[in-house]
Amino acid sequence: MDTIVSMASALCLLLGSFLCLSGGVGILRFPDFYTRMHAVGVTDTLAAAMILIGLMLQNPEGLVMLKLLLILLMTIFISPVASHALAKAAFKNDLVPLSDSNENKGGTESSIS
């Protein structure tokens, strides 16, 4: 039983780390602001959740579990809302999303300001 739990925990932690890494690669490689934000916003929420679940499985009973659960709830609330606010602010300040029809390279000084 212990082996299964620790295996599951390790799997969750690995998956979370991989998602974090892919989010980092995404913010470097994607072409414009919105796609970059999408990469980080989507992966980070799941990555944080995975890592927290992995840590919960390390210590399945007691106060630590409860605290991690609260952090998980907070993350699930805050992270997508922060992404939403960021995207909305960018859109309100006339940052045009990258598409086939416009030549905006995105994410550069001129397009943000």
Binding site: F77, V81, H84, A85
Partner: peptide, 10 residues
């Protein structure tokens, strides 16, 4: 809307 509702909850 979203910001305000989530802020109210948090």
């Amino acid at each position: 809307l979203i910001l305000r509702i989530v802020t109210k909850m948090l």
